[in-house]
Design a protein around this nucleic acid. Structure first.
Lengths: 286, 286
DNA sequence: CTATTTTTGTAATTTAATTACATTTAGCGA
DNA sequence: TCGCTAAATGTAATTAAATTACAAAAATAG
């Protein structure tokens, strides 16, 4: 993947270009957006060179021709504008920090999506399908993730619970057994309490799955690590996007389990949906 | 509508397309990347339609013609979104459903990002900064969101709590007063209990903010509606991405509050961070 | 079942891009 | 400085691509 921005490449090559090529480069760099919209004739006129010169320019940058060049230029522009991990700045106004937070979250998701181990997802789904009981453990921000996971897995009709109380976690781990799954969620994977809980549960022969950082003590302590590398947020103002990534990973697992259960499980899901109906105002009514 | 991903637009319009147009759409959605690289002749062949049909298809989506369409498609792709809004299929393998879930989440975030009312964000931040007390209420999936919000707003050094117990919610609302903020989170905005709670709190002179769907009973019942339109998930297999969107909206609000507090507030945040250190294994150690 | 409208394809046309080739320009040695 | 060579650039021809106009076919309504 020539992930390097095309505009940068042009800029770098600037000194090695001959006269008409640099004229073309100047016009493109001055307004790349406009360049993607114009024809070869227009661009040639703007740069005061002939059409074949523009064409040669494009080929110099490994394009098959002018249309291909425009396409690559468009791609570069779009990726540069939106998805940079721009940190929130104390001087930012609403528009700026809103966009930055959304963008950095989207960015984290896109990154993880491309790095996820599908084989590992499969393995974890296998374990979850076979479980007799599932406990979701998390502390701090991950407690909310564990809570969400419980709600999500509840519909599978098996005993599932979440715990954000260290004592409860310890007690459950100490009395765990084969067939139990302890699903531990931790962004850092360095929380002592959770590592100890993982070891205790493992000792008892239970399956311990950790949704956490790779190469962390927690990843080492569990029986099946399910790791994600989410870029760190060093910035004080920037919220952690790891929570969000973890939530989506759990969505993936829940979907995996549903699919594994097959279509005969759908009526059950429908029943859960229907049970909520009386709690709601009918749609359409204001 | 221009800023919205072109693939989404195609997907949305899918039901309104006629036979050959949907053939073209199918081919493009199946591999948009390839579409940007192919000529009109190739695409026509792949879709088993004539070249003018492809051309008409492009014009239907506000392009001046095929090359313009390809350009816009390339731009859309560069923004990190690949398969869009495609529902999970019972036959999908791990790779497929993982990508779909990530993409649809990313997609929801991108959509909301472009539609958010910055003025409203500002107003809500104002209210939050002035609050004497904040309650986050949610039920079901939104309970986890409320939990996360509590964790996030805790660091602002003001009394904040979350409640997923309807009775607690009622009691708190009934005893609320000016200076209290009841922040109610609900995807549908149609949960009777929450609407009643909102009305009760409002009666008492408290500020009621609802993070919910526009034109919903809950939005009507609160003092300040903070609405988001997240595309519905009709699919049984597809997880709800509204939770994720709500979480990110709360990230935005928390960031807004932090920025409003100014730099003299940073030491406080550092102190909270430092307080967690003893609970962790030092970095570097396995 | 026919008439009308919509959809789709064929063929012609136009437009855009590319290639081949000629001209110019610059560089360099005598 | 002249003349040669090679690189650079442009002109014109060619090719490829996209678009338009129009006709045929299909779908829909009466």
């Amino acid at each position: 993947m020539q992930s390097v921005n095309l505009l940068n490449v042009i800029n770098d090559q600037l000194p090695t270009l001959n006269r008409s090529e640099s004229k073309v480069a100047a016009v493109i760099l001055a307004d790349p957006e406009a360049a993607t919209r114009s024809s070869i004739a227009n661009l040639a006129k703007a740069a005061k060179v002939s059409e074949p010169s523009v064409n040669r320019f494009c080929k110099r940058f490994d394009s098959t021709g002018f249309p291909d060049f425009k396409l690559r230029l468009a791609r570069s522009l779009a990726s540069g504008i939106r998805f940079v991990n721009r940190n929130v700045d104390p001087g930012d106004d609403v528009t700026a920090y809103t966009a930055k937070i959304f963008d950095s979250t989207i960015n984290s998701l896109a990154l993880v999506r491309d790095r996820i181990s599908h084989e590992r997802v499969s393995q974890v789904v296998d374990k979850l399908v076979q479980a007799k009981r599932i406990y979701f453990f998390g502390l701090g921000a991950s407690a909310a993730v564990a809570r969400d996971a419980e709600h999500k897995f509840f519909r599978f009709n098996l005993p599932v619970s979440h715990h954000d109380d260290v004592l409860m976690q310890r007690m459950l781990a100490a009395t765990g057994s084969a067939g139990d799954i302890f699903f531990i969620i931790s962004y850092t994977g360095r929380t002592r309490e959770l590592v100890e809980v993982a070891l205790a549960a493992r000792e008892r022969g239970a399956t311990v799955i950790a949704l956490t950082a790779p190469d962390s003590p927690l990843a080492a302590a569990c029986t099946l690590e399910f790791t994600v590398e989410v870029p760190e947020n060093t910035d004080d103002y920037m919220p952690m996007s790891s929570r969000i990534v973890h939530l989506v990973m759990l969505d993936v697992l829940a979907t995996g389990v549903t699919l594994r259960r097959g279509p005969e499980f759908l009526p059950h899901l429908e029943r859960i949906k229907a049970s909520l109906k009386p709690t709601r105002f009918p749609p359409g009514k204001q």
